[in-house]
Amino acid sequence: MFLVNRRRFLAMVLSLPAVASAAVTAPNQDTATDLVEAMLSRAHVPRHSNELWVLVDDKEATLSVFRGNALLERFAPISLGRAGAKTQRVRGDNVTPMGEFHVNRFNYESQWRTFIGIDYPTPVHARMALEKGIYSQADYDDYFDYYRRYGRPPQDTALGGAIGIHGLGSADPDIHGRYHWTQGCVAVTNDQIDRLAALVGVGTRVVIR
Rank of each mutant, 00 (worst) to 15 (best):
F2N: 08
V4T: 08
V4H: 00
R7I: 12
R8A: 04
F9E: 04
F9P: 00
F9M: 04
L10Y: 15
L10S: 03
M12P: 00
V13N: 00
L14G: 07
L14A: 05
P17N: 05
A18H: 04
V19G: 06
V24K: 03
T25M: 08
D30L: 13
T31K: 15
T31G: 01
T33D: 12
L35S: 02
V36C: 07
V36K: 02
V36Q: 05
E37S: 02
E37N: 09
L40S: 09
R42M: 15
A43R: 02
A43C: 03
P46R: 02
R47Q: 12
H48D: 13
N50P: 00
E51K: 07
W53C: 06
V56K: 01
V56N: 03
V56T: 01
D57P: 06
D57I: 06
D58G: 02
L63I: 11
L63E: 04
V65T: 09
R67S: 14
R67L: 12
G68R: 05
G68C: 13
L71M: 15
E73Y: 15
R74K: 15
F75N: 03
I78L: 03
R82A: 14
A83C: 04
A83I: 03
A83M: 08
K86A: 13
T87D: 04
Q88P: 00
V90E: 01
G92M: 09
N94A: 13
N94D: 14
G99F: 05
E100I: 10
F106A: 10
N107W: 06
E109H: 08
Q111S: 13
Q111K: 08
W112E: 10
R113E: 09
T114M: 00
I116P: 01
P121E: 04
T122H: 05
T122A: 08
V124E: 03
V124S: 03
H125C: 05
H125Y: 04
R127S: 01
R127W: 12
M128I: 00
K132E: 14
G133I: 11
I134Y: 14
I134Q: 07
I134D: 13
Y135D: 01
Q137D: 14
A138D: 15
A138I: 11
D139I: 12
D142F: 00
Y143P: 14
F144G: 05
Y147G: 01
R149I: 00
Y150A: 01
P153I: 05
Q155D: 10
A158R: 12
A158K: 13
L159A: 03
G160N: 06
G161P: 07
A162N: 12
A162R: 10
A162D: 12
I165G: 04
L168Y: 08
G169F: 08
A171T: 01
P173D: 15
D174Q: 11
W181P: 05
G184E: 06
V186I: 15
A187W: 04
V188W: 11
T189N: 11
T189Q: 13
D191L: 07
D194G: 06
A197K: 05
L199V: 09
L199P: 09
G201H: 12
T204C: 01
R205P: 11
R205W: 09
R205S: 06
V206A: 02
V206T: 01
V206Q: 07
V206Y: 03
R209V: 04
